[in-house]
């Protein structure tokens, strides 16, 4: 990431203005052209510095209040295949392989978001059927102490 990219990213990381010409306003703040701001954002998207450009949803505020961390004990040699199948479920928002620990023998972690706990349980059961993995648990979040995006 170069200096110009970092400058733009800092200016937009908390959101663009909701106006007729949002990128022009950003450009004015930075003393750049609107065209350059837009093309630099596109380049950062292509380079993967920006994972996604779009709206971040306050999912709890609109009723998507249930979220479960589903943890799975997947045979090591099947992790690649199973992780891919799990990632394809639209309700699965995150899917990671993590190391097993002596007292915590789970190696795949998926986040499932939905409207109700029952929905999450149902999704996990569908994932279990689709993958044949039966050793799993759901950890529901009871309190959110902190949630922030990645910031520079």
């Amino acid at each position: 990431m170069d200096e110009v990219e970092e400058k733009i990213l800092r200016a937009i990381q908390d959101g663009i203005p909701l106006t007729h010409s949002p990128f022009s306003e950003i450009a004015n703040q930075l003393d750049m052209s609107e065209k350059e701001v837009i093309s630099q954002i596109k380049v950062m998207h292509e380079k993967g510095i920006i994972r996604r450009f779009g709206a971040s949803i306050g999912h709890r505020d609109i009723g998507i209040i249930a979220n479960a961390m589903c943890i799975w004990n997947v045979p090591d040699e099947r992790v690649g295949d199973v992780g891919t199948i799990m990632a394809n479920f639209p309700e699965v928002t995150h899917c990671y392989e993590r190391p097993r620990r002596p007292e915590w023998n789970y190696n795949l972690f998926t986040m499932v978001h939905s409207y109700t706990k029952e929905d999450c349980v149902e999704v996990a059961s569908e994932i279990s059927k689709a993958t044949g993995i039966s050793d799993y648990r759901l950890l529901f979040s009871e309190r959110e102490f902190k949630k922030t995006g990645v910031r520079l």
């Binding site: 663009i16 949803i57 306050g58 990645v150």
Partner: peptide
């Protein structure tokens, strides 16, 4: 724009902007 301003004020939209890839930065 009016709807997005309201959705933003109410909290349905937290922001419209980039999701930064921690690994790439």
């Amino acid at each position: 724009i009016e709807r997005l301003e309201r959705l933003h004020d109410e909290g349905a939209v937290r922001k419209i902007g980039p999701i930064i890839n921690r690994r790439s930065v």
